[in-house]
């Protein structure tokens, strides 16, 4: 089955920009905010957000980190293949920071659960808020909801949502695929 495009270039840019503006509106300034992207695909979103925020605020010093959650997953022994860890680039303590935890797609909530767990190994943030580009509603397995959300999508189990980025995939778009069973 052909993939259905649910967000493309123009609207995609607007959505990312809106999320940045919402963040600035809520917080006033970003001096105590740390953006943390989750490996592997959340970091692509986080890097884009950082770039946009730098353009909007003119502030080049946005605190930023990347977090890998492989060792914190709750399903690593139930997967057919062993998960290979990505890179964690987080060289500061999170004590006292207001963390924006960033991932591209929120689905069951298990990745975010593992992300929160991994995050706490780096200190005690003052607060953690969740920002996702796509929220797949009605498919949560844990009580986790986004604080900032680009777009909500109603999808069923057999479907898969993929976010593609200009930097790594050639163009910005969100696709809804039917997974072959």
């Amino acid at each position: 089955m052909q993939a259905l495009s649910i967000l493309e270039s123009g609207a995609f840019d607007l959505t990312v920009r809106r999320l940045c503006l919402e963040l600035i509106e809520d917080r006033g300034h970003l001096g105590d905010t740390a953006l943390i992207g989750l490996q592997p695909r959340g970091v692509l979103f986080a890097r884009r957000l950082r770039r946009e925020l730098q353009q909007i605020t003119g502030d080049k010093t946005i605190t930023y980190g990347e977090l890998d959650i492989t060792f914190h997953r709750d399903d690593f022994r139930q997967r057919p293949v062993t998960a290979i860890p990505g890179t964690t680039a987080l060289d500061f303590s999170l004590d006292g920071w207001r963390v924006g935890l960033i991932d591209d797609v929120l689905y069951t909530g298990r990745t975010i659960r593992a992300g929160l767990d991994a995050l706490l190994a780096f200190g005690r943030p003052r607060s953690v808020e969740l920002m996702v580009l796509i929220d797949r509603r009605f498919s949560r397995e844990l009580p986790i909801q986004p604080d900032y959300c680009g777009r909500s999508v109603d999808s069923i189990d057999g479907q898969h949502v993929t976010v593609e980025w200009k930097e790594s995939d050639g163009q910005d778009r969100v696709l809804l695929n039917q997974v072959q069973r």
């Binding site: 060792f71 997953r73 860890p85 964690t88 780096f122």
Partner: peptide, 18 residues
């Protein structure tokens, strides 16, 4: 995989629940 764990060992809390 060991590269990943080297990074874990440099964290303030050097423990993962795997």
């Amino acid at each position: 995989t060991a590269d990943g764990f080297k990074e874990v060992l440099s964290r303030p809390i050097r423990k993962v629940p795997s």
